[in-house]
Design a protein around this nucleic acid. Sequence first.
DNA 1: GAGTGTGAACGTCTTCACAGCG
DNA 2: CGCTGTGAAGACGTTCACACTC
Lengths: 254, 254
Amino acid sequence: MATGRTHRPATRSRGIPEATVARLPLYLRALTALSERSVPTVSSEELAAAAGVNSAKLRKDFSYLGSYGTRGVGYDVEYLVYQISRELGLTQDWPVVIVGIGNLGAALANYGGFASRGFRVAALIDADPAMAGRPVAGIPVQHTDELESIIMDNGVSIGVIATPAGAAQQVCDRLVAAGVTSILNFAPTVLSVPDGVDVRKVDLSIELQILAFHEQRKAGEEAAADTAAAPAATRKQSATDQGPDGDVPAVMPA
Amino acid sequence: MATGRTHRPATRSRGIPEATVARLPLYLRALTALSERSVPTVSSEELAAAAGVNSAKLRKDFSYLGSYGTRGVGYDVEYLVYQISRELGLTQDWPVVIVGIGNLGAALANYGGFASRGFRVAALIDADPAMAGRPVAGIPVQHTDELESIIMDNGVSIGVIATPAGAAQQVCDRLVAAGVTSILNFAPTVLSVPDGVDVRKVDLSIELQILAFHEQRKAGEEAAADTAAAPAATRKQSATDQGPDGDVPAVMPA
DNA sequence: GAGTGTGAACGTCTTCACAGCG
DNA sequence: CGCTGTGAAGACGTTCACACTC
Protein backbone atom coordinates (compact mmCIF):
# COMPACT_ATOMS: atom_id res chain seq x y z
CA MET A 1 0.00 0.00 0.00
CA ALA A 2 1.54 3.07 1.00
CA THR A 3 5.03 3.98 0.70
CA GLY A 4 6.61 3.76 4.04
CA ARG A 5 7.15 7.36 4.68
CA THR A 6 9.24 8.61 7.47
CA HIS A 7 8.03 10.16 10.58
CA ARG A 8 7.91 13.87 11.17
CA PRO A 9 10.77 14.74 13.50
CA ALA A 10 8.58 17.03 15.49
CA THR A 11 10.62 20.11 14.93
CA ARG A 12 10.52 20.99 11.29
CA SER A 13 13.93 22.53 11.01
CA ARG A 14 13.41 24.36 7.76
CA GLY A 15 9.67 24.40 8.25
CA ILE A 16 7.15 27.13 8.07
CA PRO A 17 4.61 26.91 10.91
CA GLU A 18 1.31 25.36 9.93
CA ALA A 19 -0.56 28.41 11.13
CA THR A 20 1.47 30.52 8.77
CA VAL A 21 0.96 28.18 5.83
CA ALA A 22 -2.77 28.36 6.42
CA ARG A 23 -2.67 32.13 6.11
CA LEU A 24 -0.52 32.38 3.02
CA PRO A 25 -3.47 31.81 0.67
CA LEU A 26 -5.23 34.69 2.41
CA TYR A 27 -2.33 37.01 1.81
CA LEU A 28 -2.05 35.78 -1.73
CA ARG A 29 -5.65 36.63 -2.46
CA ALA A 30 -5.31 40.13 -1.03
CA LEU A 31 -2.10 40.66 -2.97
CA THR A 32 -3.67 39.45 -6.19
CA ALA A 33 -6.43 42.00 -5.78
CA LEU A 34 -3.85 44.74 -5.26
CA SER A 35 -1.89 43.51 -8.24
CA GLU A 36 -4.96 43.75 -10.43
CA ARG A 37 -5.35 47.34 -9.37
CA SER A 38 -1.71 47.88 -10.26
CA VAL A 39 -0.75 48.86 -6.74
CA PRO A 40 3.04 48.61 -6.63
CA THR A 41 3.71 48.33 -2.90
CA VAL A 42 1.88 47.77 0.38
CA SER A 43 2.74 48.18 4.00
CA SER A 44 2.18 45.37 6.44
CA GLU A 45 -0.58 47.45 7.97
CA GLU A 46 -2.53 47.82 4.74
CA LEU A 47 -2.08 44.26 3.62
CA ALA A 48 -3.00 42.95 7.02
CA ALA A 49 -6.23 44.92 6.95
CA ALA A 50 -7.06 43.53 3.51
CA ALA A 51 -6.39 39.99 4.63
CA GLY A 52 -8.17 40.35 7.94
CA VAL A 53 -5.24 39.74 10.28
CA ASN A 54 -3.13 42.04 12.38
CA SER A 55 0.10 43.46 11.08
CA ALA A 56 2.42 41.91 13.64
CA LYS A 57 1.22 38.48 12.68
CA LEU A 58 1.64 39.21 9.03
CA ARG A 59 5.17 40.47 9.44
CA LYS A 60 6.06 37.45 11.52
CA ASP A 61 4.56 35.17 8.90
CA PHE A 62 6.55 36.81 6.12
CA SER A 63 9.70 36.62 8.16
CA TYR A 64 9.55 32.84 7.86
CA LEU A 65 9.67 33.16 4.10
CA GLY A 66 12.60 35.53 4.10
CA SER A 67 13.19 39.27 4.13
CA TYR A 68 11.07 40.35 1.24
CA GLY A 69 10.14 43.84 2.43
CA THR A 70 11.86 47.19 2.37
CA ARG A 71 12.07 49.12 5.62
CA GLY A 72 10.36 52.42 5.52
CA VAL A 73 8.49 51.40 2.38
CA GLY A 74 6.69 48.08 2.55
CA TYR A 75 6.44 45.07 0.27
CA ASP A 76 6.60 44.92 -3.50
CA VAL A 77 3.26 43.43 -4.51
CA GLU A 78 4.34 41.52 -7.60
CA TYR A 79 7.40 40.12 -5.95
CA LEU A 80 5.45 38.91 -2.94
CA VAL A 81 2.80 37.32 -5.12
CA TYR A 82 5.52 35.35 -6.80
CA GLN A 83 7.27 34.34 -3.61
CA ILE A 84 4.13 33.17 -1.89
CA SER A 85 2.93 31.33 -4.97
CA ARG A 86 6.22 29.55 -5.16
CA GLU A 87 6.20 28.69 -1.50
CA LEU A 88 2.72 27.24 -1.79
CA GLY A 89 3.68 25.29 -4.86
CA LEU A 90 1.27 27.14 -7.10
CA THR A 91 3.77 27.84 -9.82
CA GLN A 92 3.26 24.33 -10.99
CA ASP A 93 0.20 22.68 -12.39
CA TRP A 94 -1.85 20.48 -10.07
CA PRO A 95 -4.26 18.12 -11.77
CA VAL A 96 -7.17 17.38 -9.46
CA VAL A 97 -9.98 14.86 -9.64
CA ILE A 98 -13.37 15.36 -8.05
CA VAL A 99 -15.20 12.21 -7.03
CA GLY A 100 -18.93 12.40 -6.42
CA ILE A 101 -20.70 14.74 -8.79
CA GLY A 102 -23.82 15.57 -6.86
CA ASN A 103 -24.81 19.09 -6.00
CA LEU A 104 -21.62 19.73 -4.14
CA GLY A 105 -19.34 18.08 -6.66
CA ALA A 106 -20.93 20.13 -9.42
CA ALA A 107 -20.46 23.29 -7.39
CA LEU A 108 -16.80 22.44 -6.95
CA ALA A 109 -16.37 21.68 -10.64
CA ASN A 110 -17.80 25.08 -11.45
CA TYR A 111 -15.82 26.91 -8.83
CA GLY A 112 -13.57 29.46 -10.46
CA GLY A 113 -11.14 29.67 -7.59
CA PHE A 114 -9.41 26.49 -8.66
CA ALA A 115 -8.31 27.38 -12.13
CA SER A 116 -7.14 30.80 -11.08
CA ARG A 117 -4.57 29.18 -8.87
CA GLY A 118 -2.57 26.30 -10.22
CA PHE A 119 -5.37 23.78 -10.02
CA ARG A 120 -6.82 22.05 -13.04
CA VAL A 121 -9.80 19.73 -12.86
CA ALA A 122 -8.46 16.70 -14.66
CA ALA A 123 -11.61 14.63 -14.29
CA LEU A 124 -15.01 14.30 -12.69
CA ILE A 125 -15.91 10.88 -11.42
CA ASP A 126 -19.23 9.49 -10.27
CA ALA A 127 -20.58 6.06 -9.44
CA ASP A 128 -23.89 6.64 -11.17
CA PRO A 129 -23.79 5.17 -14.70
CA ALA A 130 -26.52 7.62 -15.71
CA MET A 131 -24.10 10.48 -15.11
CA ALA A 132 -21.38 9.06 -17.34
CA GLY A 133 -20.70 11.19 -20.37
CA ARG A 134 -22.87 14.01 -19.20
CA PRO A 135 -20.86 17.22 -19.10
CA VAL A 136 -20.62 19.24 -15.90
CA ALA A 137 -18.79 22.54 -16.07
CA GLY A 138 -17.76 21.53 -19.55
CA ILE A 139 -16.11 18.32 -18.43
CA PRO A 140 -17.67 14.94 -19.13
CA VAL A 141 -18.33 12.85 -16.06
CA GLN A 142 -16.58 9.49 -16.02
CA HIS A 143 -17.56 6.34 -14.24
CA THR A 144 -15.87 5.14 -11.07
CA ASP A 145 -14.51 2.17 -12.96
CA GLU A 146 -12.10 4.51 -14.65
CA LEU A 147 -10.81 5.95 -11.40
CA GLU A 148 -7.47 4.17 -11.27
CA SER A 149 -6.58 4.75 -14.89
CA ILE A 150 -7.55 8.42 -14.71
CA ILE A 151 -5.34 8.99 -11.69
CA MET A 152 -2.40 7.21 -13.19
CA ASP A 153 -2.66 8.55 -16.72
CA ASN A 154 -2.86 12.13 -15.49
CA GLY A 155 -0.41 11.88 -12.65
CA VAL A 156 -3.02 13.14 -10.23
CA SER A 157 -1.83 13.54 -6.65
CA ILE A 158 -4.72 15.56 -5.23
CA GLY A 159 -8.24 14.19 -4.94
CA VAL A 160 -11.45 15.80 -3.78
CA ILE A 161 -14.11 13.59 -2.22
CA ALA A 162 -17.67 14.89 -2.47
CA THR A 163 -19.51 11.61 -2.19
CA PRO A 164 -22.04 10.59 0.45
CA ALA A 165 -20.46 9.62 3.75
CA GLY A 166 -20.98 5.94 3.16
CA ALA A 167 -18.85 5.84 0.04
CA ALA A 168 -16.07 8.12 1.21
CA GLN A 169 -13.69 5.64 2.82
CA GLN A 170 -13.88 3.28 -0.09
CA VAL A 171 -13.25 6.03 -2.60
CA CYS A 172 -10.42 7.27 -0.43
CA ASP A 173 -8.79 3.84 -0.39
CA ARG A 174 -8.97 3.58 -4.15
CA LEU A 175 -7.58 7.07 -4.65
CA VAL A 176 -4.69 6.35 -2.33
CA ALA A 177 -3.99 2.97 -3.90
CA ALA A 178 -3.85 4.66 -7.30
CA GLY A 179 -1.32 7.19 -6.13
CA VAL A 180 -3.16 10.16 -4.65
CA THR A 181 -1.34 11.58 -1.64
CA SER A 182 -3.49 14.59 -0.72
CA ILE A 183 -7.21 14.50 -0.14
CA LEU A 184 -9.77 17.18 0.43
CA ASN A 185 -12.74 15.53 2.08
CA PHE A 186 -16.23 17.00 2.07
CA ALA A 187 -17.94 13.86 3.29
CA PRO A 188 -18.84 13.92 6.97
CA THR A 189 -16.63 11.02 7.96
CA VAL A 190 -13.26 10.51 9.51
CA LEU A 191 -11.09 9.02 6.80
CA SER A 192 -8.29 6.74 7.69
CA VAL A 193 -5.26 6.83 5.46
CA PRO A 194 -1.73 5.47 5.43
CA ASP A 195 1.19 7.53 6.59
CA GLY A 196 2.32 10.01 4.03
CA VAL A 197 -1.15 10.96 2.89
CA ASP A 198 -2.56 14.32 3.92
CA VAL A 199 -6.24 14.78 4.50
CA ARG A 200 -8.03 18.05 5.01
CA LYS A 201 -11.68 18.04 5.83
CA VAL A 202 -14.38 20.59 5.21
CA ASP A 203 -17.52 19.96 7.17
CA LEU A 204 -20.46 22.25 6.73
CA SER A 205 -22.44 20.95 9.60
CA ILE A 206 -19.55 21.35 12.01
CA GLU A 207 -19.12 24.99 11.10
CA LEU A 208 -22.76 25.67 11.79
CA GLN A 209 -22.57 23.90 15.11
CA ILE A 210 -19.67 26.06 16.18
CA LEU A 211 -21.67 29.13 15.26
CA ALA A 212 -24.63 27.84 17.21
CA PHE A 213 -22.45 27.48 20.27
CA HIS A 214 -21.41 31.12 20.14
CA GLU A 215 -24.89 32.23 19.25
CA GLN A 216 -26.28 30.50 22.28
CA ARG A 217 -23.66 32.08 24.43
CA LYS A 218 -24.56 35.53 23.17
CA ALA A 219 -28.16 35.01 24.09
CA GLY A 220 -27.14 34.23 27.62
CA GLU A 221 -25.09 37.35 27.95
CA GLU A 222 -27.75 39.88 27.13
CA ALA A 223 -27.52 41.02 30.68
CA ALA A 224 -24.01 42.01 31.62
CA ALA A 225 -23.36 43.72 28.36
CA ASP A 226 -20.70 46.24 29.03
CA THR A 227 -17.44 45.69 30.73
CA ALA A 228 -14.75 48.09 29.82
CA ALA A 229 -14.02 48.86 26.22
CA ALA A 230 -16.79 47.91 23.84
CA PRO A 231 -17.66 50.52 21.27
CA ALA A 232 -20.79 49.15 19.72
CA ALA A 233 -20.19 50.17 16.17
CA THR A 234 -16.55 49.31 15.79
CA ARG A 235 -16.12 47.64 12.46
CA LYS A 236 -13.87 44.74 12.62
CA GLN A 237 -12.27 42.47 10.08
CA SER A 238 -13.70 39.08 10.40
CA ALA A 239 -11.15 36.65 9.22
CA THR A 240 -8.70 37.73 11.79
CA ASP A 241 -8.19 34.77 13.81
CA GLN A 242 -10.28 31.84 13.81
CA GLY A 243 -10.34 29.88 16.73
CA PRO A 244 -7.66 27.46 17.21
CA ASP A 245 -8.25 25.17 14.52
CA GLY A 246 -9.82 22.10 15.07
CA ASP A 247 -12.70 23.00 12.90
CA VAL A 248 -11.82 21.99 9.58
CA PRO A 249 -9.80 19.03 9.99
CA ALA A 250 -6.52 18.36 9.26
CA VAL A 251 -3.26 18.10 7.79
CA MET A 252 -1.50 14.95 8.56
CA PRO A 253 1.92 15.16 7.16
CA ALA A 254 3.68 11.88 6.99
CA MET B 1 2.19 50.16 25.18
CA ALA B 2 3.96 48.61 27.99
CA THR B 3 1.76 47.08 30.53
CA GLY B 4 -1.85 46.44 31.02
CA ARG B 5 -3.81 46.14 27.84
CA THR B 6 -7.45 45.90 28.65
CA HIS B 7 -7.58 42.60 26.97
CA ARG B 8 -10.05 39.86 27.40
CA PRO B 9 -9.92 39.24 31.14
CA ALA B 10 -7.55 36.43 30.47
CA THR B 11 -9.28 33.71 32.37
CA ARG B 12 -12.64 33.10 30.87
CA SER B 13 -14.03 31.76 34.07
CA ARG B 14 -16.81 29.61 32.69
CA GLY B 15 -15.40 29.32 29.20
CA ILE B 16 -14.70 26.28 27.12
CA PRO B 17 -11.57 26.64 24.98
CA GLU B 18 -12.24 27.32 21.32
CA ALA B 19 -10.21 24.32 20.29
CA THR B 20 -12.48 22.16 22.39
CA VAL B 21 -15.66 23.71 21.02
CA ALA B 22 -14.44 22.99 17.51
CA ARG B 23 -14.09 19.31 18.35
CA LEU B 24 -17.41 18.82 20.10
CA PRO B 25 -19.29 18.35 16.82
CA LEU B 26 -16.81 15.64 15.93
CA TYR B 27 -17.47 13.79 19.15
CA LEU B 28 -21.15 14.29 18.71
CA ARG B 29 -21.09 12.68 15.31
CA ALA B 30 -19.15 9.68 16.56
CA LEU B 31 -21.47 9.34 19.53
CA THR B 32 -24.55 9.54 17.35
CA ALA B 33 -23.24 6.68 15.26
CA LEU B 34 -22.67 4.62 18.40
CA SER B 35 -26.10 5.53 19.67
CA GLU B 36 -27.66 4.28 16.46
CA ARG B 37 -25.93 0.99 16.97
CA SER B 38 -27.29 0.95 20.51
CA VAL B 39 -23.87 0.90 22.08
CA PRO B 40 -24.42 1.83 25.73
CA THR B 41 -20.97 3.02 26.79
CA VAL B 42 -17.60 3.92 25.29
CA SER B 43 -14.16 4.42 26.67
CA SER B 44 -12.20 7.54 25.86
CA GLU B 45 -9.89 5.38 23.80
CA GLU B 46 -12.63 3.99 21.59
CA LEU B 47 -14.44 7.25 21.14
CA ALA B 48 -11.22 9.07 20.39
CA ALA B 49 -10.42 6.57 17.66
CA ALA B 50 -13.85 7.04 16.13
CA ALA B 51 -13.51 10.79 16.17
CA GLY B 52 -9.96 10.82 14.95
CA VAL B 53 -8.29 12.41 17.96
CA ASN B 54 -6.18 11.03 20.76
CA SER B 55 -7.71 9.96 24.01
CA ALA B 56 -5.89 12.41 26.27
CA LYS B 57 -7.22 15.30 24.26
CA LEU B 58 -10.71 13.90 24.37
CA ARG B 59 -10.67 13.42 28.12
CA LYS B 60 -9.33 16.90 28.61
CA ASP B 61 -12.05 18.28 26.36
CA PHE B 62 -14.76 16.49 28.28
CA SER B 63 -13.34 17.66 31.55
CA TYR B 64 -14.28 21.21 30.57
CA LEU B 65 -17.90 20.14 30.31
CA GLY B 66 -17.95 18.38 33.63
CA SER B 67 -17.35 14.90 34.97
CA TYR B 68 -19.61 12.88 32.78
CA GLY B 69 -17.68 9.62 32.77
CA THR B 70 -17.44 6.69 35.12
CA ARG B 71 -13.99 5.59 36.15
CA GLY B 72 -13.19 2.07 35.19
CA VAL B 73 -16.09 2.04 32.75
CA GLY B 74 -16.24 4.92 30.31
CA TYR B 75 -18.94 7.29 29.15
CA ASP B 76 -22.65 6.69 28.79
CA VAL B 77 -23.34 7.30 25.12
CA GLU B 78 -26.87 8.69 25.37
CA TYR B 79 -26.02 10.94 28.24
CA LEU B 80 -22.99 12.37 26.50
CA VAL B 81 -24.97 12.97 23.31
CA TYR B 82 -27.39 15.01 25.33
CA GLN B 83 -24.76 16.96 27.23
CA ILE B 84 -22.77 17.87 24.14
CA SER B 85 -25.91 18.78 22.22
CA ARG B 86 -26.94 21.05 25.00
CA GLU B 87 -23.53 22.64 25.28
CA LEU B 88 -23.51 23.34 21.56
CA GLY B 89 -26.99 24.77 21.70
CA LEU B 90 -28.44 22.08 19.48
CA THR B 91 -31.36 21.29 21.71
CA GLN B 92 -33.05 24.35 20.36
CA ASP B 93 -34.19 25.08 16.85
CA TRP B 94 -31.99 27.30 14.69
CA PRO B 95 -33.68 28.76 11.65
CA VAL B 96 -31.09 29.44 8.95
CA VAL B 97 -31.26 31.32 5.67
CA ILE B 98 -29.06 30.58 2.70
CA VAL B 99 -28.34 33.47 0.40
CA GLY B 100 -27.12 32.75 -3.11
CA ILE B 101 -28.70 29.69 -4.64
CA GLY B 102 -26.16 28.74 -7.26
CA ASN B 103 -24.53 25.34 -7.38
CA LEU B 104 -23.14 25.70 -3.92
CA GLY B 105 -26.26 27.18 -2.36
CA ALA B 106 -28.31 24.34 -3.81
CA ALA B 107 -25.84 21.82 -2.46
CA LEU B 108 -26.17 23.37 0.97
CA ALA B 109 -29.94 23.40 0.77
CA ASN B 110 -29.88 19.70 -0.01
CA TYR B 111 -27.33 18.85 2.62
CA GLY B 112 -28.81 16.48 5.13
CA GLY B 113 -26.39 17.31 7.89
CA PHE B 114 -28.31 20.44 8.78
CA ALA B 115 -31.69 19.08 9.60
CA SER B 116 -30.26 16.20 11.57
CA ARG B 117 -28.82 18.70 14.00
CA GLY B 118 -30.98 21.54 15.19
CA PHE B 119 -30.79 23.49 11.95
CA ARG B 120 -33.80 24.27 9.81
CA VAL B 121 -33.53 25.98 6.47
CA ALA B 122 -36.06 28.77 6.90
CA ALA B 123 -35.56 30.27 3.47
CA LEU B 124 -33.49 30.30 0.31
CA ILE B 125 -32.74 33.71 -1.13
CA ASP B 126 -31.35 34.68 -4.51
CA ALA B 127 -30.92 37.92 -6.42
CA ASP B 128 -31.97 36.41 -9.72
CA PRO B 129 -35.68 37.09 -10.37
CA ALA B 130 -35.76 34.05 -12.62
CA MET B 131 -35.06 31.85 -9.60
CA ALA B 132 -37.90 33.24 -7.55
CA GLY B 133 -40.57 30.70 -6.82
CA ARG B 134 -38.58 27.82 -8.18
CA PRO B 135 -38.23 25.11 -5.57
CA VAL B 136 -34.80 23.89 -4.51
CA ALA B 137 -34.67 21.01 -2.08
CA GLY B 138 -38.40 21.44 -1.72
CA ILE B 139 -38.15 25.04 -0.64
CA PRO B 140 -39.20 27.87 -2.96
CA VAL B 141 -36.47 30.41 -3.64
CA GLN B 142 -37.34 33.95 -2.64
CA HIS B 143 -36.02 37.18 -4.03
CA THR B 144 -33.44 39.30 -2.25
CA ASP B 145 -36.03 42.02 -1.79
CA GLU B 146 -37.64 39.85 0.85
CA LEU B 147 -34.43 39.37 2.81
CA GLU B 148 -35.16 41.70 5.68
CA SER B 149 -38.72 40.56 6.22
CA ILE B 150 -37.73 36.90 6.07
CA ILE B 151 -35.06 37.38 8.71
CA MET B 152 -37.32 39.31 11.02
CA ASP B 153 -40.45 37.22 10.59
CA ASN B 154 -38.59 34.01 11.29
CA GLY B 155 -36.27 35.29 13.98
CA VAL B 156 -33.26 34.11 12.01
CA SER B 157 -29.93 34.68 13.68
CA ILE B 158 -27.70 32.52 11.49
CA GLY B 159 -27.10 33.26 7.82
CA VAL B 160 -25.16 31.39 5.18
CA ILE B 161 -23.61 33.34 2.33
CA ALA B 162 -23.03 31.40 -0.88
CA THR B 163 -23.06 34.29 -3.31
CA PRO B 164 -20.29 35.36 -5.66
CA ALA B 165 -17.51 37.28 -3.92
CA GLY B 166 -18.66 40.61 -5.26
CA ALA B 167 -22.06 40.43 -3.60
CA ALA B 168 -20.97 38.98 -0.28
CA GLN B 169 -20.23 42.12 1.71
CA GLN B 170 -23.47 43.76 0.67
CA VAL B 171 -25.49 40.69 1.55
CA CYS B 172 -23.63 40.46 4.81
CA ASP B 173 -24.47 44.07 5.68
CA ARG B 174 -28.14 43.48 4.99
CA LEU B 175 -28.21 40.29 7.01
CA VAL B 176 -26.57 41.99 9.95
CA ALA B 177 -28.81 45.03 9.73
CA ALA B 178 -31.83 42.73 9.79
CA GLY B 179 -30.64 40.99 12.93
CA VAL B 180 -28.38 38.12 11.95
CA THR B 181 -25.49 37.70 14.38
CA SER B 182 -23.71 34.62 13.04
CA ILE B 183 -22.57 34.16 9.48
CA LEU B 184 -21.11 31.23 7.62
CA ASN B 185 -19.31 32.64 4.60
CA PHE B 186 -18.50 30.59 1.52
CA ALA B 187 -17.61 33.56 -0.64
CA PRO B 188 -13.89 34.11 -1.05
CA THR B 189 -13.81 37.50 0.62
CA VAL B 190 -12.94 38.93 3.98
CA LEU B 191 -16.18 40.17 5.43
CA SER B 192 -16.19 43.07 7.78
CA VAL B 193 -18.83 43.05 10.47
CA PRO B 194 -19.68 44.98 13.62
CA ASP B 195 -18.66 43.77 17.03
CA GLY B 196 -20.88 41.06 18.33
CA VAL B 197 -21.24 39.28 15.01
CA ASP B 198 -19.41 36.01 14.45
CA VAL B 199 -18.16 35.03 11.05
CA ARG B 200 -16.78 31.68 10.04
CA LYS B 201 -15.37 31.21 6.60
CA VAL B 202 -15.10 28.14 4.45
CA ASP B 203 -12.82 28.59 1.52
CA LEU B 204 -12.37 25.76 -0.91
CA SER B 205 -9.49 27.25 -2.76
CA ILE B 206 -7.56 27.89 0.44
CA GLU B 207 -7.86 24.28 1.49
CA LEU B 208 -6.46 23.12 -1.81
CA GLN B 209 -3.59 25.54 -1.58
CA ILE B 210 -2.65 24.20 1.81
CA LEU B 211 -2.66 20.69 0.39
CA ALA B 212 -0.51 21.83 -2.50
CA PHE B 213 2.02 23.20 -0.07
CA HIS B 214 2.40 19.86 1.66
CA GLU B 215 2.30 17.99 -1.59
CA GLN B 216 5.16 20.04 -2.94
CA ARG B 217 7.11 19.45 0.20
CA LYS B 218 6.65 15.70 -0.12
CA ALA B 219 8.00 15.75 -3.64
CA GLY B 220 11.14 17.42 -2.41
CA GLU B 221 11.73 14.82 0.22
CA GLU B 222 11.84 11.73 -1.91
CA ALA B 223 15.47 11.46 -1.06
CA ALA B 224 16.07 11.18 2.66
CA ALA B 225 13.28 8.78 3.24
CA ASP B 226 14.08 6.66 6.20
CA THR B 227 14.88 7.64 9.70
CA ALA B 228 13.83 5.45 12.51
CA ALA B 229 10.31 4.30 13.05
CA ALA B 230 8.22 4.18 9.94
CA PRO B 231 5.95 1.20 9.64
CA ALA B 232 4.79 1.41 6.09
CA ALA B 233 1.24 0.36 6.50
CA THR B 234 0.33 2.11 9.68
CA ARG B 235 -3.18 3.28 9.32
CA LYS B 236 -3.82 6.58 10.86
CA GLN B 237 -6.92 8.53 11.59
CA SER B 238 -6.99 11.61 9.51
CA ALA B 239 -9.06 14.16 11.23
CA THR B 240 -6.94 14.04 14.27
CA ASP B 241 -5.61 17.39 14.46
CA GLN B 242 -5.58 19.75 11.81
CA GLY B 243 -3.07 22.18 11.69
CA PRO B 244 -3.40 25.15 13.80
CA ASP B 245 -6.33 26.75 12.48
CA GLY B 246 -6.01 29.70 10.63
CA ASP B 247 -7.35 28.11 7.57
CA VAL B 248 -10.90 28.55 7.67
CA PRO B 249 -11.46 31.78 9.25
CA ALA B 250 -12.88 32.74 12.20
CA VAL B 251 -14.93 33.24 15.11
CA MET B 252 -15.07 36.70 16.38
CA PRO B 253 -17.07 36.81 19.48
CA ALA B 254 -18.09 40.22 20.53
C1' DG C 1 10.30 59.42 9.65
C1' DA C 2 8.26 55.23 8.22
C1' DG C 3 7.93 50.63 8.39
C1' DT C 4 10.26 46.03 8.46
C1' DG C 5 12.24 42.19 11.03
C1' DT C 6 12.60 39.84 15.33
C1' DG C 7 13.80 38.52 20.27
C1' DA C 8 11.24 38.00 24.20
C1' DA C 9 6.92 37.84 26.82
C1' DC C 10 2.69 35.95 26.94
C1' DG C 11 -1.22 33.06 26.13
C1' DT C 12 -3.29 28.87 24.31
C1' DC C 13 -3.42 23.98 23.11
C1' DT C 14 -1.55 19.39 23.52
C1' DT C 15 0.63 15.69 25.72
C1' DC C 16 2.25 13.29 29.64
C1' DA C 17 1.78 10.65 33.55
C1' DC C 18 -0.38 9.45 37.49
C1' DA C 19 -3.58 10.06 41.46
C1' DG C 20 -8.02 8.62 42.52
C1' DC C 21 -12.33 6.39 42.01
C1' DG C 22 -15.59 2.78 40.67
C1' DC D 1 -7.61 -3.60 37.70
C1' DG D 2 -9.45 -0.25 34.27
C1' DC D 3 -10.34 4.05 33.02
C1' DT D 4 -11.43 8.81 34.09
C1' DG D 5 -10.03 13.35 35.46
C1' DT D 6 -6.38 16.60 35.93
C1' DG D 7 -2.04 19.06 37.49
C1' DA D 8 2.22 19.97 35.36
C1' DA D 9 5.32 20.16 31.44
C1' DG D 10 6.05 21.20 26.98
C1' DA D 11 5.02 22.67 22.20
C1' DC D 12 2.99 25.99 19.54
C1' DG D 13 1.07 30.41 18.22
C1' DT D 14 0.36 35.40 18.97
C1' DT D 15 1.45 39.87 20.49
C1' DC D 16 4.56 43.32 22.06
C1' DA D 17 7.94 46.62 21.52
C1' DC D 18 11.95 48.22 19.72
C1' DA D 19 16.38 48.01 17.17
C1' DC D 20 17.59 48.57 12.67
C1' DT D 21 17.36 49.97 7.86
C1' DC D 22 15.93 52.54 3.98
